[in-house]
Amino acid sequence: MQLSMEELDGGITKVILDGRLDIAGAQEIDLKLNVIAGTKKAVLVDMQKVTFLGSMGLRTLVAPAQAIKGRGGKVVLFGPNEMVENVLRSSKMHTLIPIHHELQSALAALR
């Protein structure tokens, strides 16, 4: 699992995930996401290249989102594929971390 970052206008940080968010993938990005969660306030998690999401991957997404929201920030998920989105919806995570498929609406939700 690869993680890269891009700073966008308006103080928004785009976090691009690429690969499988399984147990191994979750371990690979846990620390990086926690650092982001401790410093950023508006985070767009680009899920377009995430090919798998399991329960450990969910945990890896939820903990930083909790931290960011706890500091008054916002997190949105952008562009998960159908099956990854099914995992997010089955676990009700979409009610807590909004999912967007249009970049403009994802950015607007963070402003």
Binding site: S55, M56, R59, V62, Q66, K69, N86, S90, S91, M93
Partner: peptide, 24 residues
């Protein structure tokens, strides 16, 4: 089954694995 979370701080990730297995 894990309860439906009302907020992020309520999220219990434990139990999600079994829940997902039953769903999928």
């Amino acid at each position: 089954e894990p309860p439906v979370p009302a907020s992020l701080s309520d999220v219990s990730v434990g139990g999600q694995g079994i829940h997902l297995m039953k769903q999928f």
